[in-house]
Write a protein that binds this DNA or RNA. Structure first.
Lengths: 351, 351
DNA sequence: TTGAAAGCGCTAACAC
DNA sequence: GTGTTAGCGCTTTCAA
């Protein structure tokens, strides 16, 4: 690991503060860490010296001594460079950040992949994240947007790094805890809403099959149909992804296959917007001819033309629970292994 | 700083690898850091032991010894919890992340503010970021979205933390380097485009006055008008912000003041979309009655109804230059102090 | 080429 | 209450 040369101008150390305050290092340490076993007098002297010298504890040294870093990592494991195009990530990052701010911990956000060009199989990036975490730079990690059979949670667990997953893993044998939203229930709600509105030929724009959330939403769609007494209909399901392009593509597929289509449940709001565009391109009106329901309750759903009915995920809650679970693990307290949070339908137009 | 109790299961140390390989710690260290002064034989033995034991260097220890962390921070200094609603941030985070991936460094993303409720004056959060950075957890920092007279760059500089700013600071005396896009030129281009298209009453939806980018864009608007021989017209400028709501609000203000308005240059794409909604609400057609130009070339501009002409910022370049400048500083190499990158107009409809 | 030894700055027993 | 004393795991002279 080649390191650039220039060192930092030396910052004041505990030692120097001790000398300035006329006490020992231990006393300074006690004051700085907030121990009560210090005389008021000593404390005052130390505090004065700290302020005067502009002392800030060196984290590396503290971390080396305590074997803790006071830091947790939020890892967004998104190999396509689309991380923040997804409104969902934006929300969860904010929610987690906000929850962490209420603790003594510091949050670092690790983006898993940057340029797939450079690193087609993701292995180098995988190693980076893994090395960073196993190298002891964080006390624990929140893992988001796991795809397929990503070995990261397994490996971190093997290394003893506490981990909580945002979203249920594909392999439900994994010995890690997770928090998820009720994707299945949400999609069921959305589909039922369309069916109850009198739509006869409701299809699904499915997300990437290697992601659990996408699969759960598709399952919800199927259940709602079944519950309404409708037969299985694979031709009403088109695979896309969570992006606008993916949604548009799936929409075109569906339109070609099912001329009678009068409603679709999309994998995400972005996909729903893509569907809107695909429909406009062939002159189908929304919602008169075809109703479209999104998933995420993001800004794009609210500002779409027409505004989209969509499924709201309790993102703030999710962020809170993720942090809560990880903190409990770090503190050695018991906590639920799995948490599923309810979703709800946000109705924006009457179809 | 109260730390939770549970320690990590102990990971293998250099010491243990040395014993397993039958060499000294120094030799292991040399192999691990890639020093050439090691016999092939010793190297092989060490590599084997490293692999077998699953050894990963402890960063805190290494950092303590080298006084470097191998990490740089990207600080998004956004006090409103709206960080990732802004497509610009999403883009820049991605671009920086991608540029850092090409180096040996690791990127950590620090979100400056989470819950303004908790911390009305931002001081606690400010201290966090500052403590983290001055505590030696990163070798340098990229600072984004500075507002007003944020003392952070000054303070970090005083502490000897290398800093590069994304966006020109208000105080141009600040002894730090920065990378910015040509906001002024972009806004000028956009305004001129409208004027050249025959629009007579072109207004501006300005951004927050405490942000340089917003001010520069407003200046660009004024210059374009002046260049077209038009007089100053304060009533054609309404202050909003970069959000959709801000844009809608400013649009309504302008409409109330200037019934003849036939074009607006918005502070951002989001603001432009807000303007679209405000216009639709009063039955004005876009672009027939009023033309709207955005700023950012984000997804929302492309998918708006109608698709919006907008100003493209070279975000990938900006990310690359930011990282480049910081790396140069870290390596003690010389580099330009300030960089301004060109913007361009993306024309989406003929007005 | 290799090893021994001295820290890097801090915390945490343990005595006083 | 306060100071003394060991380390935490690694890098890096300095000798050999």
């Amino acid at each position: 690991m080649s390191q650039p040369p220039t060192p930092r101008p030396t910052a004041p150390t505990l030692q120097e503060v001790a000398r300035a305050a006329g006490v020992s290092r231990s006393t300074v340490s006690r004051v700085v860490t907030g121990s009560p076993r210090v005389s008021a007098e000593a404390r005052r002297a130390v505090e004065e010296a700290v302020a005067r010298l502009g002392y800030v504890p060196n984290r590396a040294a503290r971390s080396l001594a305590t074997r803790r870093t006071g830091t947790i990592a939020l890892v967004v494991r998104e190999p396509e460079s689309r991380v923040f195009d997804e409104p969902f990530f934006a929300g969860i990052v904010r929610a987690v950040s906000s929850a962490v701010a209420r603790t003594e911990l510091q949050l670092v956000l690790l983006l898993a992949a940057a340029d797939p060009q450079l690193d087609p199989d993701g292995s180098r990036e995988r190693d980076r994240i893994e090395r960073y975490l196993t190298g002891g730079h964080a006390d624990g990690a929140l893992l988001l947007s796991l795809h397929g059979d990503d070995p990261l949670p397994q490996r971190l667990h093997a290394h003893g790094v506490p981990v909580v997953l945002g979203g249920r893993p594909i392999d439900d044998q994994l010995p890690v805890s997770w928090v998820d939203v009720d994707n299945l229930g949400g999609a069921e709600l959305a589909t039922t809403h369309l069916l109850a509105g009198g739509r006869r030929h409701v299809g699904a724009l499915a997300g990437p099959p290697d992601m659990v959330a996408a699969r759960d939403r598709l399952t919800g769609f199927r259940r709602a149909r079944a519950a309404a007494g409708l037969p299985e209909a694979p031709t009403l399901e088109a695979v896309g992804d969570f992006t606008r392009e993916g949604g548009a593509r799936a929409m075109r597929t569906l339109l070609a296959r099912e001329p009678d289509l009068d409603g679709v449940v999309a994998a995400s709001d972005l996909a729903a917007v893509g569907a809107l565009q695909a429909l406009a391109a062939v002159g189908r009106r929304v919602p008169e001819d075809v109703a479209v329901v999104g998933f995420d309750d993001s800004l794009v759903a609210a500002s779409a033309q027409p505004p989209l009915t969509t499924v709201r995920q309790p993102i703030d809650q999710m962020g809170g629970r993720l942090v809560e679970l990880l903190c409990a693990r770090l503190a050695g307290e018991s906590a639920p292994r799995h948490v599923v949070l309810p979703t709800e339908l946000v109705v924006r137009h009457s179809t």
